[in-house]
Amino acid sequence: MVGGAQKSDWRFHKRICKKPEKKKKKDAKKPATASSSEGSGSASAPAPAPASSSKPKRKPAAATSQAELDAEDEEIVKSLKGYRYFHRDVSEHEAKIIGDITPERVGGNDSDDDPMPIAAATATPQSLATNSAWNTAKTWEERDMTTWAKSHLESLLVGVSQDVTDSLAEIKELADWDGDASIPVIRGRPRFLYDFTFNVRTLPSFPRRHASHTLPSPSFLWGRCCM
């Protein structure tokens, strides 16, 4: 079984193993030397005469096998061509199948190097309350709206004024913000969450003379007496 396997894989193992046929020939010629070496023992050195006599016989055999190996090597290298992942020559037939693989510019042959603008539809306010295009599974998405909420509340509230008896109370600024606003989209449904606490600073302008001299009516003061 082992011999058969070696024969079938011979061309892949020939550098390590010896050809079985030549082994037989050598075994037929060698028995005397093999027996002498066995008889003398592994510790004792072999006699110089038989060693020198066997060398001239082996040299031409080695030379021929080397020549055969070179020829076989070339055949193997030719047969292995195309199986090496590190280097692969594309044949003409393969090149025809693959075609032209020269990199091409994405988006046509525009000479302009500027990136393509994003479609304006994605930035419209309407899309804030819907899932993103990538979120086809409609998983949780949340958009922070705190900055927008603060600025929008300021735009709505600053400037609101009210006459207060003899003066005007006008909202000048919003300050000391606490809280946030966000739009989570849960299962495709938007929720508009906001929770704020803030200060509305007013600067009521009271005429000095009225503030110092006018006596309020008791009904205006809700029972408070300033007399």
Partner: peptide, 14 residues
Amino acid sequence: SSAKKATVKVIEFS
């Protein structure tokens, strides 16, 4: 006029 300061604290606007 004299610049008097008043603040209206808006609590739990949610």
